[in-house]
Nucleic acid binder design. Structure first.
Lengths: 133, 133
DNA sequence: TCGCATAGGGATAAATTTATCCCTATTGTA
DNA sequence: TACAATAGGGATAAATTTATCCCTATGCGA
């Protein structure tokens, strides 16, 4: 595993939730598992942009953080099912809030995200006026 | 600036909100600015774990994403004030939800986050039983 | 005169996260 | 017989994000 070199910052609730949700696909994994997509292969198909490897890793972290639990069926080919834990369920409303805000503001967000490289030429402040950027 | 090599994924609300909030200190910056801490130096003091450089960069991104706005006072030494925009304000309840969840579950989170390196010895599945991990 | 405070940005190193590729094992199917 | 499907993990490269260090400018106080 990777040996952290800069110590964690765990000062407040935001740090703590960040520690378990920060990861490119974690929120989506939690969401889909909550919707009943249990097997890793299903989740992989649901999130084709993610590499198989990262999903495996992030699933394991979610599990270590007790947001999901895992059942291994001793069959061949292997079968594994994840479920959301009671603890994990309490996160669902929070995730909804995030997703809803994103959906509600889709147009504007898409616009500000994609226009980024823009630099206004006259953005430097004038000598005796405040400049609102 | 950095030239992205892997294209953005902007499929759903979660992707969109992630694009503007994902960044080690962005949520906190937004939070403190909303609380009325306007100047970069104040914010820096509020978030001493962050390097000055990153704060500058993340402030600029928040501004480009129209979540905060900036006023430059043409004085020496320089003076700058950020304020949260109306758009940014709509994010505050979402951020509250995140922080509250983290606060409410502080003890448990702290525990699962810090015990991570643990590996159960008997975690491999038995031959005829399901293994719940 | 020296150094501080202030805001910002360039250059570069380091840290961290993701992506890629490959290997294990077994049964069923083409 | 060769290959797909399944879950996982090692090794390593690449991408991305942060950290560090340094430089600009100016009025004020020691």
């Amino acid at each position: 595993m990777y040996e952290r070199k800069i110590p964690l910052t765990l000062n407040c609730g935001l740090d703590l939730i960040g520690e378990v949700l920060y990861g490119k696909w974690k929120i989506r994994l939690l969401w889909f598992i909550n919707e009943g997509h249990k097997r890793p292969s299903e989740l992989q198909r649901k999130i084709p942009d993610a590499s198989r490897r990262v999903l495996t890793i992030q699933l394991k972290e979610l599990e270590e953080h007790e947001l999901i639990s895992k059942v291994i069926y001793p069959v061949v080919p292997p079968k594994v099912e994840y479920s959301i834990t009671d603890f994990g369920k309490t996160l669902i409303p929070v995730i909804s809030a995030l997703g809803n805000w994103g959906d509600k503001n889709e147009a504007r967000l898409r616009s500000v995200i994609l226009k980024e490289p823009k630099r206004l030429p006259g953005q430097i402040q004038a000598s005796h006026n405040l400049t609102k950027v």
